[in-house]
């Protein structure tokens, strides 16, 4: 099996994306509170999703698939942003906000 340049780039992007997912998961497990965990999870996972989608787009070699993957990435971004916001908001208004009271 020979690997063309496109395959190599696609595979590299996929592996990089998985690395970001891995980092996000480590952050989720290791960080101390809700806000830090959300930060790690959403930031790293959005980047991971982008890289994975980009890798798949390169591997597919088709503009149609690329457009679909772009839509998937955007929807993923939207869902992640809103759910992270709602979780953080819930934690902030909950019984244990877990942050100091130095609000502007």
């Amino acid at each position: 099996m020979t690997m063309g340049l496109a395959d190599l780039i696609g595979a590299t992007l996929l592996v990089l994306g998985c690395a970001f997912y891995g980092a996000g998961t480590v952050g989720l497990l290791r960080f101390p509170d809700v806000y830090n965990r959300l930060h790690a999870l959403t930031k790293a996972d959005n980047q991971g999703l982008l890289l994975v989608c980009a890798g798949l787009a390169v591997l597919s070699g088709s503009w149609g698939v690329t457009a679909l993957l772009a839509v998937i990435w955007l929807l993923g971004l939207t869902a992640a942003a809103v759910s992270a916001h709602l979780i953080a908001r819930h934690a902030r208004h909950g019984p244990d906000p877990g942050v100091s009271a130095e609000e502007p």
Binding site: T78, A79, A81, V82, H85, L86, R89
Partner: peptide, 19 residues
């Protein structure tokens, strides 16, 4: 219900419902 005052939620609705 989720507080609809949150700007992100109404943004989510206007994007996600049509999609």
């Amino acid at each position: 219900q989720v507080d609809r005052e949150t700007p992100l939620v109404s943004a989510l609705l206007t994007t996600v419902a049509p999609v």
